[in-house]
Nucleic acid binder design. Sequence first.
RNA 1: CGGGGUGUGGCUCAGUUUGGUAGAGUGCUUGGUUCGGGACCAAGAGGCCGCGGGUUCGAGUCCCGCCACUCCGACCA
Length: 576
Amino acid sequence: MLLSQLIGERYREKPGDATMASHIFMLRGGYIRQVASGIYTLLPPAKRITAKIEAIIRQEMDAIGGQEVLFPVVMPAELWRESGRYDSIGSELLRMRDRTGHDMLLGMTHEEASVHLARSEATSYTRFPFMIYQIQTKFRDEPRSRGGLIRVREFTMKDAYSFHTSQEDLARYYEICHKAYERIFARVGLPGIVSVKSDTGMMGGKVAHEFMLLSDSGEDSLVICPHCGFSANVEASPVRAAHEERPSRPVRKLETPHCKTIDDLCALLGTTPDRTVKACVFAVEGRRKPVVVFIRGDFEVNEAKLRQRVGADVFPLADSASCPDICFGFIGPVGFSADADVWFDATLEGEKDMVCGANEADLHLSGVDMTPEGLGANWPAGFFDLAKARAGDVCPVCGKPADLRRGIEMGNIFQLGTKYSASMGYTYTDADGKPQTPIMGCYGIGVGRLMAGICEEHHDDYGPVWPISVAPWQIHLCAIGGAKDPAVAEAARQLYGELSARHEVIFDDRNVTAGVAFADADLLGVPVRVIVGRGLGRDGTVEVATRDKSYRENVPLDGVPAAVEAQIARLTAEIG
RNA sequence: CGGGGUGUGGCUCAGUUUGGUAGAGUGCUUGGUUCGGGACCAAGAGGCCGCGGGUUCGAGUCCCGCCACUCCGACCA
């Protein structure tokens, strides 16, 4: 490819709106252009990178028995009504009508399509297990896109669906897929991606993992234990509070006028938030009764956990407008008798000598124990994990301090179970001739986001440093001063022919100064650079270097192909 | 959906307070001098100042409405 012909300008200045490195460089380098919020055109360099990523994904999916298909982008609402998702999903699902007035939608994921296919093509147990996958455009009408390709509305995704005759077989295949994902991420140059336990959300199912690129600019918070290897999304991470054993003390009623917050209370009584019991009140979608969660004062309620526990959406309530029998600001577990569903968070279990609301205005109790004696009639059937993980919490598995890190989700895997196969009436005939419902798993990777993630991980001050496995070209050939020196132009042209025979070469054939040529080369991030210029006239040499600065050498003209070959081999071997 | 911000040549931005012929840098075109880390000189092309109303002799600038983009939060299959 001639750089003089490459479509896509490169900019010297940082685009105004971009803050993430990948966003800045992919705009400056002519990789992407925005068309609308969260909707982008990919230019040739980006298209070449995603094609490389897709090829790696295909190889690994094929290697674990995947069969590539292509589902439609536009689907009839009818199909999604079968699973119930046409009505249960909000405005992220883009709905429309066709010319005959039928409700249609843009696919944001393809569980329905995969079941639609499988239920008519795989009706005998002899077909199982199997996995089908596709690499295709998805549209999710995100309320807020950001960060260039990190979070968009239209994107390319590899999504795979596996079908099994038993939970054990799904679990077995899930592990196989987990390993395939690790290989994919290592091969595209991100061996540091970690898998974390994740919330299954509205997808249904029990077990799920997300593959996270650790990055300060990530949108997700992760609990990662450096001691035992435990890792989980904070949304899904159990919380274990550091607990101090202390003696019981007598219960006392305290005057606490106007102390409606934990901070007020601690200031007045000279105690700390972890010695208090906080009550959080939530309205529940579709229910009259509110939910009250008792939790240790230094923790917050994780609404995702509560939502899952309650089985419906929840909204925090701040005053007694809709529940007059609750004494806001002074709610406590002792003698609490309002009409509400009450939950106790696990952070309270076993705590003694706590301060809590007395359920009367301007009064609190101290010396309350979270024991059957201390709580009396309100002693709960159980303590549940409803707290939001914080930095500095102890690991829920080994009890040592865990880290809280930020991450960018690059892929996810779910054990779906029968949510879609059952709701959509998919059965196969087992060996006894009886109908059975298949058990499903699904597995996704965002291709564009992965490209952006690679850029986040591999760049310097001047541009991306693409791993050779995904680089848009392997070799960047520059002719410096070629317009003036015919020997340089001729040598570069000849090298272009030779190197192109075996590799992808981008040839900067323009008549520009060295500074411009090098700046553009940095933005294109091609791993091996060949510079024909002053060295040729001086001592007949050409510079061969790598973008990552691990190698630079002046080699004789006829030695260039071998030197290039050696560097490509070395960089390729490093990826593994 | 709540709260902020910004819309002016391809890109980055002045100009808006106090209304009076549309600006700079960069990029682009042409000619010349340069030529290993974003060179220099000269001459050019390129703008419905986001859109629609209004006020005014006159609006990029003031008023009203709308739209788009963006940041923080909520949401995220």
